[in-house]
């Protein structure tokens, strides 16, 4: 059994959905920054100033939700994205990364691919509304960055989302 005992197992003890601290995601992706942390954190502005990222995030809305295992944009989502597209075309100095997410009901790899499908659906919609594709990037966090942590539909519904995260063109190379 000595041979057997020397088997090694790689562990991911870090940063995965493994810890019990409800604040494990640093307060979630609320406000201006997305889960990626490379977004519009620190971009100033007031929600009443239509040219500010705050206006984009709060008044227009930076995120849309999806049905279980779906990547089709809802009518409500289209309204938000129409506003996002208009804002992005008016404020040409900004770029955006669209982050797709999934709820925890699914396997890790599939959820990454599903989140990507959702982010891409948003990108295609924004491009169809006139936003240059060159100013948009997409990524997926799968089920790794839930904003609501509970095991029922109330939370799952909030986690099945795509978030449009702004950044200055000048900042992003």
């Amino acid at each position: 059994m000595n041979m057997f005992k020397k088997l090694a197992v790689v562990l991911l003890v870090l940063a995965t959905a493994a810890c019990t601290n409800p604040d494990r995601f640093g307060g979630g992706a609320g406000g201006a920054g997305g889960a990626g942390g490379a977004g519009a954190d620190g971009l100033a502005g007031s929600a009443s100033d239509p040219a500010s990222p705050q206006f984009f995030n709060q008044t227009i809305g930076d995120r849309v939700l999806f049905a279980v295992d779906q990547s089709t944009i809802t009518d409500q989502g289209k309204t938000i994205h129409d506003g996002q597209a208009q804002w992005l075309m008016t404020n040409a100095d900004y770029r955006a990364v669209i982050e797709g997410h999934a709820d925890e009901q699914g396997t890790r790899e599939y959820n990454l691919a599903l989140g990507f499908r959702r982010a891409n659906a948003v990108r295609e919609y924004l491009v169809s509304r006139g936003v240059p594709a060159s100013r948009l990037e997409v990524t997926s966090f799968g089920k790794e960055r839930p904003i609501e942590v509970c095991s029922n539909e109330t939370c799952y519904a909030q986690n099945r989302r795509a978030v449009t995260v702004l950044s200055f063109s000048a900042i992003t190379s």
Partner: peptide, 17 residues
């Protein structure tokens, strides 16, 4: 359960050494 301190996921069992 495999007794490990802290959370863990995604194991990958390596070859015999």
């Amino acid at each position: 359960a495999v007794p490990i301190q802290g959370g863990a996921s995604d194991p990958s069992w390596g070859p015999l050494q």
